[in-house]
Nucleic acid binder design. Structure first.
Lengths: 210, 210, 210, 210
DNA sequence: GATGAATGAGTATTCATTCAT
DNA sequence: TATGAATGAATACTCATTCAT
C-alpha cells in the first residue's frame, strides 16, 4: 500500500470517526441544540479539526444522510439480486430492509426533513448535493424495479413503478414520523414496529391484483 | 355582552392577528430563520406584545398547528355525520377532506410536521402539549370510527381501527413530506396531487376485504 | 419638544456615548485588538446594544472618521470666513486648524488609512460611505478655496487649487504617520509638532510666488 | 565553497522564495485577510516551513519592508555619489529615485505604511525592529546629507537636514497614501504621478533660499 | 395593556502556530 | 529540514426575552 493510499485511508477513518460522533450528538440533542464543540468532544478532537473534514455544520449533518442512503442501497440491491423471490416475497424482503435501515439510524427521517429547508440547502456544497441526489435517485430506482417486476408479471396493479416506490417510501417515513410524535405526545409504548408491519401489509394488499 | 366578555373577545382577536402574521413569516422563512421581530413587524405590533399572548416562540409556533387540527376535526366530523355513505364512500370522502386540509394551508402542514419532530415538542408547555394531544387524539378517534364501521360491516380487514387511522394519517403526511422534498432536490414538477391520489387508492384497496 | 424629537435626541446621545467609548478603546488597542466587548464595557452597555446603533465593527470604526471630518470642516469654515486674513495668513490659520484637528483625535490618520482597505469598504453601508465621501470632498473643497484665493491674488503659484489642497493634506498626514512610527522605532521624544511646523513653512514658501 | 556556506546560501534562497510569495499574497489580500496558508501555497511550501524562516506573521510582513528599504538605500547612495550634480539637481535626482522606489513595488509601499502603524510595529522582535531602525536611519541619513550639502552651499534654507529629510519622506508617503485613498473613495482616475510631481516641485521651491 | 430599547448568553468558524513523523 | 494535520483560543454578531415607562 502506497503512502498516498495509506493517508487517504487514514483520512476516511477520521471522517467516519467524526460522523459517528455527530450521529450520537445529533440524536441526543437535535440539530440546533447540538454544538460543534459537543461533537468535537464526542469525537475526541478539537473543533477546528471538524472543519478540516466538513465545510460546516449543515454539511456535516447532511453527510449523515449520505451514509444511510449508502446503507439503504446496499440492502436494496441485495433484495433485488435474490432471484429466488417472487414479487410478493420481494415486498416482504423490502419491508425488512427498510426496518433494518431505520434501526441502523433512527435519525433517517428527521435528517431527510432537515434537508428540505432551502436555508440548509444553500450551505451545502454542490458536490455533496449532487451526491445526495444521485443516491436518492438510485435508491428510488432500485425500489421501482422491484415493483416493475411485479407489474410485468401481472401480479401488481398497473401504476408507474416510480410512483409506487414514492408511496412506499412516503408510507415508511410517515409512519416513523407519526409514531415518534405519538410516543412523545402520549408518553406511551413504542408501537412503531407493529404499525409499520400493518402499514406494509395494507400496502402490499393494495398493490396486488385480485 | 359584559365588559369581561368584550375584553376576552378583543384578546382573541389579537391572538388571531399574531397567528396569521406568524403563519406568513414561518411559511416564508422556516422556523429557525424566522425571528420574533419579523413576526411582530408583520403583525404591526411590538416584540414585547407577542409575549403577552404566547409564552415563547415554540408555543407560538405550535399554536399554528392547533388551528389546522381544529379545521381537520370539523371536516372529519362532517364526513362521519353523513349517514348516507357506506364505509367505502366514507374513505373517499375522508380522502377529499384530507385534500381540503392540505389546501386550507399547504405550508402550515409542512410546519406541522416539523412540530412533530421531537426536538420541538420537548420545548412546549404542558398545557399546550395537552391540548395538541387532545385534538390529535380526537381527530384520530374520528378517523378510527370510520374504519371501525367498515370493520363492523365486514368490508374492511380485521385490524385495530386506531392503527389503521394512524397509517392513513402517516401515509398522508409522508406523501406530502416526500413529494415536497423531492421537489426541492430535483427542482422538478409538483406531482403531489397525483401521488396522493394513487396512495389513497392503494390504501383503500389494501384495507378492503376481497 | 415632541416625544419623537426627544427620542431622536436620546438616540443621538447614545450614539455619541458609544463613539466616545470606541475612540478610547481603538486608540488604546488598535482596530484589530479592540473587541466589541471592550467597547461595550467602556460604554457601560451590552454588546448587543452596540449593534442597535452601528451595523458592525467596521462601520463603528468608520463613524469615528465622520466625527473628525465634521470637526475639521467647522474649523476650516472658520478660517475661510475670516475676512481679515490675507492668503498667507490663512495658510497659517489653516496649519493651526489642522493641528487642532490632530489633537482632537490623533487617530485621524490611522482611521483614514484603515478606510482604504477595500475589505473594509465592503462592510460599510452605502449611506455611510456616501456621507464620508461628501464630507471628505467638502473639506477638500474648502481648503482648495483658500488656495484659490491666493492664486487669484497672484501671491500663490499657478496650480490647480485642489491639487494643492491634496498635497497640503498629504503632507499633514504623512508627517503624522512618519513621526509616530519614528517615535516607536527610536523610542525617543515626540518631534511631531516641530516637524509639522517646519513642514508647513516649507510648503508655504513653496507655493508662494517670488 | 564550504558546506556551511552552501547551506547558508540555500537558506537565503528559501527566504527570498517565501518573501516573494508573501509579497504577492499581501498585496492581493491585505495584511489581515492574507493567511499563512495562502502564503505557504503560493510559495509551494507547507505552513510549518514558513516558521523555520520567520518567527511569525508580523515578522514575515515586516521583512517585506526591509527589502524596499534596501532598494531605497541603493538608489539614494547612487544619487549622493554623483559628484557632478549640484544640490538642486540632486533634489531632482532624489525625486526620480523615489519614483523608482514606488514603481519597484507600488503595493509594497502601501504595505510599508501599514507597517508604520504602531499596531504592527509593537509585535515585532527586537532584532527585526533594530534592523528596520538601522536601515531607516541610514536612508534618512543619506537623504539628510543631500540637504546638508545644499544648506552648506547656502542654497537651501537653514533647517536641520534630518528634519528636512523627514518631511521629504513624509510628503512622499503622504501623497501615495492620500491619492490611493482618494482613488478608492471616488473610484476615479489615478492622479498619483501628477500630484507627486507637483508636491516635489513645491517642496523643492520651499527649501530653496530666494 | 403596549411598547421597544436593552440585554447578554450562546456559537459557528477562523487561522496562527505547533509538533510528531 | 520539511511536513501538514491538528490544535484551541479568540470573537463578531444574533435574537429570544425582559422590563421600565
Amino acid at each position: 500500500m502506497g503512502i498516498r493510499e495509506r493517508k487517504e485511508r487514514e483520512r476516511e477513518r477520521r471522517r467516519q470517526q467524526i460522523i459517528v460522533a455527530a450521529k450520537r450528538v445529533f440524536s441526543d440533542k437535535g440539530f440546533s441544540k447540538a454544538t460543534m464543540e459537543d461533537i468535537a468532544k464526542e469525537a475526541e478532537l478539537s473543533p477546528g479539526t471538524l472543519y478540516l473534514y466538513f465545510k460546516n455544520k449543515d454539511e456535516l449533518y447532511a453527510s449523515l444522510s449520505l451514509r444511510i442512503l449508502q446503507y439503504l442501497i446496499i440492502r436494496l440491491e441485495h433484495v433485488i439480486g435474490n432471484k429466488e423471490l417472487n414479487p410478493e416475497q420481494k415486498i416482504e424482503a423490502l419491508t425488512e430492509a427498510m426496518f433494518d435501515v431505520y434501526e441502523f439510524d433512527p435519525l433517517i427521517i428527521i435528517n431527510m426533513f432537515h434537508l428540505q429547508s432551502s436555508e440548509t440547502l444553500k450551505n451545502l456544497s454542490d458536490d455533496l448535493l449532487a451526491e445526495i441526489e444521485t443516491l436518492s435517485r438510485k435508491s428510488l430506482g432500485t425500489m421501482a424495479s422491484i415493483f416493475q417486476e411485479g407489474i410485468d408479471q401481472g401480479v401488481f396493479i398497473q401504476q408507474h413503478p416510480v410512483a409506487i416506490a414514492d408511496i412506499f417510501w412516503a408510507l415508511f417515513s410517515g409512519v416513523i414520523l407519526w409514531e415518534s410524535s405519538k410516543k412523545i405526545l402520549d408518553g406511551k409504548k413504542d408501537y412503531l414496529k407493529d404499525t409499520l408491519k400493518v402499514a406494509f401489509e395494507i400496502f402490499s394488499r393494495g398493490i396486488q391484483k385480485r
